[in-house]
Amino acid sequence: MAYSDKVIDHYENPRNVGSLDKSDEAVGTGIVGAPACGDVMKLQIKVEDDVITEAKFKTYGCGSAIASSSLVTEWVKGMKIDEAEQIKNSQIAEELSLPPVKIHCSVLAEDAIKAAIADYRDKKKG
């Protein structure tokens, strides 16, 4: 399958790979998986005054899954969490020109950012 240039760029130079301290009160962690293929994705955000100041990911999966999570971490930095929550997989798929068989990778990235925000909110509630 031919990957788009943007997928290859994110795959070869992934942005924001790494981990944040998941015990930090300001850090939300989302871990999601794609059962059909076994891909797993961890996406973490650090939030200050409802704004995402840092985002990191680790994705064990195909190039499209890595590119989708890399792109999302780039997008969400500087966003308010309410905005980040609105990111749709279709925007990710469009930006990366994902073919139909790889749409589930963008779904995974959307699920991951939503899970990270939900985790952060849970923590704040205490």
């Binding site: 059962p35 797993v40 680790k58 064990y60 589930h104």
Partner: peptide, 24 residues
């Protein structure tokens, strides 16, 4: 299929965390 209806069921969150941590 990843379809929530009739597709592969999602595993327990603890299992996914384990899958990440073992790779870490």
């Amino acid at each position: 299929s990843s379809d929530p209806e009739g597709g592969a069921p999602k595993p327990e969150q603890a299992f996914l965390i384990d899958m990440i941590e073992r790779r870490d």
